[in-house]
């Protein structure tokens, strides 16, 4: 399998405070990688740099072999990078089906809705089991339904890489399971998941990257990371102690 995403020596600081201090990361086609780390480790910043919401001060981001670090977000999206946001209300006053159709229509004609986009939108609503609520404005959906929609919007353009920022945050146990199953069922898309819930990470990720103070502390399979004493000390140990 070839490399889909390569991040080299990425630096980002806010007001002189380094948030990322030289991060390297490589992701193969179809690989599922979780990014964990304590609060302030730079996880969301890393997603924002890859998605284009932020620009790095130094370093490279290569997607399918192309340097994309200077591209605006919409160009990265067209090129195959989808993302979800930690807090997103999608397009609140539009109906669920209009949300999905608009997401599927991106990149098609400005004047006519593509039949293909309509099919894709319907297919996704079915996949998310939200077909019955298609006519409701998004503002009237539950938190769990909105998280599912958030993933559906990101999937509409059939991305090759999906950036997920805490997809299960704030969900009830049953809803978390639903979102996990949905993500497990995806094929042919690489996942980069920022997630706090270790159970979700175990189910979804092939491998884990641990960020700490803006650097990669460790990288490896789920078992390797859980056995890593350094990781236990700064992150897992603390998390276990809390519970």
């Amino acid at each position: 399998m070839s490399t889909l995403l390569e991040v080299r020596d990425l630096h980002k600081s806010f007001a002189g405070e380094p948030t990322l201090a030289g991060v390297d990361l490589a992701l193969k086609e179809g690989e599922r990688r979780a990014i964990i780390g304590p609060n302030g480790a730079g996880k969301t910043t890393l997603l924002n740099l890859i998605g284009g919401q932020l620009r790095p001060q130094a370093g490279h981001i290569l997607f399918a072999g192309q340097e994309i670090s200077g591209w605006p977000p919409h160009r990265r999206a067209r090129e195959g990078i989808g993302r979800t946001f930690q807090i997103s209300s999608a397009f609140p006053s539009l109906s669920l089906s209009d949300n999905m159709l608009a997401a599927a229509q991106a990149g098609h004609s400005w004047l006519h809705y593509a039949p293909e986009a309509r099919r894709r939108a319907e297919q996704l609503l079915e996949l998310l089991a939200l077909g019955a609520k298609a006519a409701l404005p998004v503002a009237q959906l539950s938190h769990g339904e909105r998280r599912a929609l958030e993933i559906g919007l990101a999937l509409a353009a059939r991305p090759r890489l999906l950036l997920l920022d805490e997809p299960t945050a704030g969900l009830a146990a049953g809803e978390t399971e639903g979102v996990t199953k949905l993500l497990q069922s995806l094929e042919g898309v690489a996942l980069l998941i920022v997630e706090h819930d270790m159970q979700v990470v175990e189910k979804l990720a092939d491998s884990i990257t641990v960020l700490h103070h803006g650097r990669v502390l460790a990288q490896g399979s789920t078992l390797e990371i859980q056995a890593n004493p350094q990781v236990q000390a700064i992150y897992l140990g603390k998390a276990h102690a809390e519970t």
Partner: peptide, 8 residues
């Protein structure tokens, strides 16, 4: 920002 992340 959401619209832009969708490719608009």
């Amino acid at each position: 920002p959401r619209a832009e992340a969708l490719g608009y």
